[in-house]
Design a protein around this nucleic acid. Sequence first.
RNA 1: CGGGGCGUGGCGCAGUGGUAGCGCACCUGCUUUGGGAGCAGGGGGUCGCCGGUUCGAUCCCGGCCGCCCCGACCA
Length: 636
Amino acid sequence: MRRISEPTTPRASAESPASLFSGESRYGATSTDLQSIACYPRAPMRWSQSFLVTLREVPGDAEVVSHQLLYRAGLVHKLAAGIYSYTPFGFRSLRKMTEIVREEMDAAGALEVDLPILQPKELWVESGRWDRYMNEGILFHLKDRKDAEFALAPTAEEAVTDMVRRSVTSWRQLPFNLYQIRTKFRDEIRPRFGLLRGREFLMKDAYSFDIDQKGLDAHYKKMDGAYRRIFDRCGLEFAVVQADSGAIGGSASEEFMVVADTGEDALVFSDAGDYGANIEKAMTGKLPEPWAGEEARPFGEANAPTPGITTTEGQAKHLRTTPARIVNTMIYEAVGADGKARLAAVLIRGDLDINEVKLPKAIGALHVRLASEEILRKVTGTRPGFVGPLGLLPFEENPISLFIDRSLEHGANLWCGANREGLHHSGVSIARDVMSQPAFASVVEIATAREGDPSPMGAGTLHIKRGIEVGHIFKLGTKYSESMKCEVADQNQKMVPLAMGCYGLGLGRTIAAAIEQHHDDVGIVWPVPLAPYACVVASLQRDAAVLAAADKLYEELKAAGVEVFYDDRDERPGVKFKDIDLVGFPVRVVVGGKGLARGVVEVSTRRERKASEIAPDRVVEVVKRTLAAGATTLAV
RNA sequence: CGGGGCGUGGCGCAGUGGUAGCGCACCUGCUUUGGGAGCAGGGGGUCGCCGGUUCGAUCCCGGCCGCCCCGACCA
């Protein structure tokens, strides 16, 4: 069999934001004028013939700005929780996003496919994800008339792996990267924030297949570059951070985050510029140790009563010390690969929090949860607030393992709960008193990074921002190819599982994120590449001269290839201004009686909202130049 | 799934044991026309669904459904 793919050279046009306007659109815009605003989709439209309904008031269920503006600007409608319809205007933005993604994926050599969303349960059982996703309750599933079960897929690893394993038999057919842009389903425990967390959503997902890790690394890097270009072209401020790979599995994984205060994820960045990670994954450098240089006092020398004081802060105050010197001991139930639950005592400095995403990996568990108070009492004899690492009783005949956060490794002169109501031990030294316990004990890194902590890279301080996850790339490795036996013969005729990568990108979510990042108090300020229309022409009066001039400008802009919308409604000027601001056309052309009498019309950008008077015969030129420059300021 | 809240016209809300109202939007007419106009006249709601109590339920009670927020959870 022949090679399935050839290396593809990225098109030069994909390098710059201007490429959206390059006339090279695959959808028939054949203009050779590189300045022309030949965005896809380009069909011009009059408001009077359109389907655009704006709202003055915000529907009660919209909490975040993007959701409110998507509603008010008439871009989406909710059908059910987390399920949205796109109106013609909203869909135009989505199509533009789709087209940008498609262009960059194609340019990166990926091949577009179309995989079923309705997938047989057997495939999911084979990969091991059926149980996992069912346990999490996030898999939409249904039965056919014969009672066979199907999933409505949230991702397509199984489907694509199945297709590949049936077709590919030799390393010579590799590598390739298959992608699709399709609706996905996830029965979110709690859909929210409009398009930001839906149950039905448009996602681009790509899956790369290589004979070895080296090939995977190359694909991963290529996708990283494609994603950067995509979000650059969308005019978004984004960050790439290290991420936890979660239920998808695999080794390396990075998230593309649009920086926005309303983001659901907390991100950690070093001000030295060399580190960024999702807080779920973030490490910290070595924290200052208050006990540094101190001589370890004897254990229990000054045990102190802490009657009824269960908070770390309260105890620190009562014991005349700082939270950093109090050891918090948390008892977790940890489920291992064998499906059995064991107990683990996790020790952390009182001024730090345990990161429950990092914890399971650090202690070799699949899943952890805090032990119930009932279990806690059984093994400690006390209640939360007074638990300590010393003298824990075995649970179901298994001694409780101790896991000590790295920040405590050298700790001395600490306080910890005495496993007795209202009592704390003094003079605790981790090495001397805790590591010497008969139970298994080890040092792990499971603290949640904090604002101001030192960077793990050595130099720099960590800062926390919030972000919206718009893309996530993973090195899956052989997780799926092994479980689903997707193997080919290598040069030595040895059957090897393929090295896979998986690359997701949320399109609707990116639209919402763009609005979160680009809006003001009167409406959306679209980045030009995502705006439903690049330009709007508005007539202010019904006066014949005004209408004639506006009509003419609309026709001229249209003829010049500008993606223009014409507000020809019989509305008062104020209504038009408010609507136009709300919907966020990057460039606005206003034709009014007063200006027209003096031979001018007004042109302004949405970003600046400062109108300049322009002679009608210069409008096309000014609009095109302004759009080509990104419409931040008017190019007169 | 735990906690809280809400379902009344397209949107935002008020209200009552005697079968429903306000603002915006909508329709008609007149006036108006540079930042969500004014006047006049109109249309539109089985008050989420089912059951119960009652002479009578939108209102009280029970159940269900839907939606939102917080938490847990989470490509």
